[in-house]
Measured scan of single mutants.
Amino acid sequence: MLDDRARMEAAKKEKVEQILAEFQLQEEDLKKVMRRMQKEMDRGLRLETHEEASVKMLPTYVRSTPEGSEVGDFLSLDLGGTNFRVMLVKVGEGEEGQWSVKTKHQMYSIPEDAMTGTAEMLFDYISECISDFLDKHQMKHKKLPLGFTFSFPVRHEDIDKGILLNWTKGFKASGAEGNNVVGLLRDAIKRRGDFEMDVVAMVNDTVATMISCYYEDHQCEVGMIVGTGCNACYMEEMQNVELVEGDEGRMCVNTEWGAFGDSGELDEFLLEYDRLVDESSANPGQQLYEKLIGGKYMGELVRLVLLRLVDENLLFHGEASEQLRTRGAFETRFVSQVESDTGDRKQIYNILSTLGLRPSTTDCDIVRRACESVSTRAAHMCSAGLAGVINRMRESRSEDVMRITVGVDGSVYKLHPSFKERFHASVRRLTPSCEITFIESEEGSGRGAALVSAVACKKACMLGQ
């Protein structure tokens, strides 16, 4: 009897593995994704193909990295998701002549009506938060230079001027797309009239992360975010950046690689679950690469896999709870928690219980395998993109072996128990001629924006502006 049951459990697990095998990517698959990513990057950089390229390769006008001589107080704003952060950054000489960066910050959550109302409502709310922060720190009387981390696709015309191309991540505030974001912020500050600010720089969160990590390690020339969304930036040779005049030196390019796949480059790798996630998203047909990796989508992918296993009578005796059938019910943090389970399955059992399920031991094991399959594919897909960037940098610099540091931020990278190990191992397999160091950014977005502002202020002083 026991043997029969054991055989049935083994057969069930084997069927589960057959279904989950769809998520496995072979090294040849990853090399294919990497080569296609490089081709799209090239198209994004070139003037004649930029418009139709899915990977936009947006110039950021960040050319210099901090040298350690900029000092002063800077205000930093960070808008990239449902939370908005205001930070005071003091850049100065530390002990023994070292450079020191001290920060104080406060988080504000953005109400739904500000995210989806008008641009005026959104930026009025942001300036209200700045006003509140300055009151708390008794700094209303000071006109501070301000660095703005704005983590949406922007076409820069200068370091302090950028046109919002399109909202992502659930934002829909009308009247912002096609307009200068810094102008919208300046107008809102003017409307309030109770404080003055000098907006000197606007950067993407990947750029802010790279600059913040450069402060720790001067070989950091790539910034990457794996959180709600997924994106990367890197220092490109100016001669390859056709959208900006000049051939000397390097400029940081914001790849906006989340949109890779929007022209069909990933079609052969998309599964039924991916198509369902895409169809029910706020932007169907867009940001397809990001939807395979980002935390906004990972939990939902797992939920759809679990429903398939229920329908195949391989999980929960073929019956799903009402909660499990509800879109968004299986949160991405559950994926991390399930994979963090120590082996007694308590954590998995508790999560499934909150979803109205009474799982068996085998159910718990199957749910864990589903989570591992989805998150491992995410790590491997992400590795193909980064390997594409790094191999490109090595080739354009004609280096036999390139040493490089990548600064990384984002909740999936930082909080998932195995993502970074799987990701690092896969990147290294795909970049055999590179020695890569990964560092995690601390308060990256805010500190990085302030350091970019410090560079901009120093330049302005040198130019006598």
Rank of each mutant, 00 (worst) to 15 (best):
R36C: 08
R191H: 04
I126D: 00
V55H: 00
S360H: 04
D135H: 05
F150H: 02
I189Y: 12
E300Y: 00
S321G: 13
Y289P: 02
P66I: 15
R303K: 02
G183R: 09
I110L: 12
T342N: 03
S174E: 10
I110A: 01
L146V: 15
V207L: 09
S336K: 03
Y214C: 09
V101Y: 04
Y214D: 03
H50M: 11
A208T: 07
D205V: 03
E331R: 14
L304T: 08
K190A: 13
V338F: 04
S131M: 02
W167E: 09
V338N: 00
T82V: 10
L243N: 14
K39E: 14
V33K: 00
K143M: 08
R429S: 14
D341T: 04
A329G: 13
G117T: 04
D160A: 12
G170N: 13
D29Y: 01
L271T: 05
V101T: 07
G446W: 13
L266C: 01
Y214G: 13
K420M: 05
C461S: 09
Q26S: 11
E272F: 09
E112K: 15
A208K: 02
E245T: 06
A114C: 13
S453N: 07
S64F: 14
K12I: 06
E128C: 06
R303M: 01
L30Q: 15
F419T: 00
E196W: 04
D262N: 11
L451H: 08
R63L: 10
S453R: 15
V86M: 06
K136Y: 06
E67V: 08
E331D: 15
L47E: 13
C233D: 02
N204A: 04
V91K: 04
E339D: 08
T342G: 12
D262T: 14
Q286V: 15
L243S: 07
F171D: 14
H218G: 03
M393W: 03
L165T: 14
A387D: 00
V406L: 02
V253A: 03
Q465L: 13
I19H: 06
R36S: 05
H50N: 03
S109D: 15
E51F: 07
G229R: 11
A21K: 07
G261N: 00
L79S: 05
D187V: 02
G299S: 04
S64W: 13
D158I: 12
C230M: 13
L307C: 07
I348Y: 04
K90M: 06
S151R: 09
E372Q: 04
D3V: 03
P153C: 04
L164P: 15
H105T: 14
G249Q: 01
R333P: 13
K143I: 08
D132L: 11
T255E: 02
A329V: 12
I225D: 04
D341L: 05
G170Q: 04
D344W: 07
D409W: 05
L276H: 14
C233R: 01
K136I: 09
S398P: 04
V406G: 01
V16F: 15
D42R: 10
S373V: 10
S174Q: 06
T65N: 14
S383A: 13
Q26M: 03
V455P: 04
C371V: 08
P359N: 02
R5V: 14
A232N: 00
I404G: 00
Y61D: 12
I390K: 01
R63E: 14
K291C: 01
D158A: 13
Y289D: 00
S127A: 10
D247I: 06
T354H: 05
N180F: 12
V16W: 15
G227M: 03
Q337H: 13
A450G: 12
E177V: 13
E435K: 06
E27M: 02
R394H: 10
N391F: 07
V91R: 04
R345C: 14
N83V: 10
T376P: 00
A21E: 14
C233V: 07
C230T: 07
N350W: 06
R303L: 00
P145V: 08
R7F: 15
G464Y: 07
L430A: 03
I189A: 06
E120V: 11
F123H: 01
L301N: 01
L276P: 00
E40T: 05
T206E: 03
I439R: 10
V154S: 14
V253T: 04
S212N: 04
Y289M: 07
D160C: 14
K142M: 13
M402P: 09
K346Q: 09
R369W: 07
F260Y: 13
Y234A: 00
A10M: 12
L146I: 15
A208I: 03
G229K: 02
T168W: 14
E237G: 08
A119Y: 07
A378T: 03
R85C: 05
I130Y: 02
I293F: 06
S445A: 12
N231K: 06
D247P: 03
A176M: 11
D274R: 01
G170T: 14
V154L: 10
G285E: 13
K143H: 09
E442C: 15
L315K: 00
S383D: 01
I436S: 02
V374W: 02
M121V: 15
R392M: 05
S353K: 09
A425D: 10
F438D: 00
V241S: 03
N180V: 11
F133D: 00
P284C: 15
L307Y: 01
M34V: 05
F438K: 03
Q24C: 15
S100Y: 02
G295C: 12
E372N: 12
G448H: 13
R428S: 13
D3Q: 04
R345K: 12
G223W: 00
D160E: 12
G285P: 02
Y273C: 05
F150S: 12
T209P: 02
A173W: 12
L315P: 01
L165A: 12
K346W: 05
T206A: 09
R394P: 00
A320C: 14
G328W: 11
G162Q: 12
S426Y: 01
K56Q: 12
C233M: 01
E177F: 05
V455R: 07
P145E: 06
M202F: 11
L309T: 02
M251V: 01
M393D: 00
E9I: 09
T437V: 14
C371R: 00
K142D: 04
S281M: 06
Y273E: 15
S109M: 13
K414F: 03
I189M: 13
M87H: 05
V181Y: 10
T116V: 08
Y215T: 06
L309M: 13
S69G: 11
M462H: 13
A282H: 02
V310R: 02
L30R: 12
K169W: 13
L79Q: 09
L45C: 05
C213A: 07
R186P: 04
M298Y: 01
